[in-house]
Design a binder for these strands. Structure first.
Lengths: 162, 162
DNA sequence: CGAATGTCAGAGTCACTGATATAG
DNA sequence: CCTATATCAGTGGCTCTGACATTC
């Protein structure tokens, strides 16, 4: 009735793999969730090995790609909430990967800049991320990867406005 | 620097839509997450209007599609943890959508069955879910929907084993 | 004045762990 | 004896809300 040799508290009492997908397994929302969770775990595992989280990469990457920005602007770019950005930047600043400087033109703002150490860190994380994404998409051909990303981008755009 | 007329605490300080995607916006793991969250919110909103959650549908659907099962078996089918299944079944049983009967062949088990009321509820939820998925995938042609689901299924299979 | 910024404190949800009593 | 089942209690992470002082 059950399957292989697994002790009690494994993952979530896994199904008998290889079976044809049930109705709920074909639900896009479910598929998205399951894939997101698994991809996240994979990424978190690898990144925690170097003491990083994916948000670190997101922020550093944005700073390098689009230049310095206020925290609110960074928040917009990355999709991370203003309120959560604070602690995140604290983490990055502790390691001197970023620096906060008061904006002379607008004293409400901090200008956040990436440091040299931050750039080095970013390269390290970028390499890791590339490996992770590559493992993630291992079963797909380059064309399929493009296709998947494109579909997800379009879906994202559609859901953005609800 | 900012965009339209939005009060302070909207969503997450949204980006200027329509811009070309940045590096991080093209990351599959990020795309999956964002889409999953948004799809979830959409589903939760609609389902809460009739006092349901997506897990209700998952369980009822599984019972109808694959027949009665023990809680552990249901857990395997749906991917919901055994420990979370308890409260979920309590909710469903309160409304008499499912019933727990002791399994005569194995007194550790409860056999969970769907009731007539449960079947009616399932139909109601299935209709809602169809609408939700339809809205979710609105921008895609039928062929593209199949494609997306197929890609996500394959990805899921791949990540299942890590 | 209304709106944006950085910050903090906390809610709600979800995946997940661990332990226990009971039964195979 | 080891394993499975149903159950309960609790953790950790993440999204998200609300409020506040300061500045535009």
């Amino acid at each position: 009735m059950t399957n292989a040799a697994r002790t009690d508290s494994d993952h979530a009492d896994m199904p008998a793999a290889g079976a044809p997908p049930t109705r709920i397994q074909r639900l896009p929302s479910r598929l998205l969730n399951q894939n997101a969770n698994r991809a996240d775990r994979l990424a978190a595992e690898r990144l925690s090995a170097v003491g990083a989280r994916k948000w670190h990469y997101a922020v550093l990457s944005s700073l390098e790609e689009s230049g310095p920005a206020s925290q609110a602007e960074l928040s917009r770019r990355t999709g991370i909430y203003r309120s959560d950005m604070v602690a995140l930047l604290n983490e990055l600043a502790e390691h001197d990967y970023v620096r906060r400087a008061p904006d002379p033109d607008d004293r409400r703002r901090n200008v956040v800049l990436i440091t040299d150490a931050g750039r080095t860190r970013l390269e390290e994380l970028a390499k890791l991320i590339r490996q992770i994404e590559d493992d993630l998409l291992a079963p797909f051909s380059p064309a399929e990867r493009e296709l998947l990303i494109d579909l997800l981008l379009r879906l994202n755009e559609h859901l953005e406005t609800r």
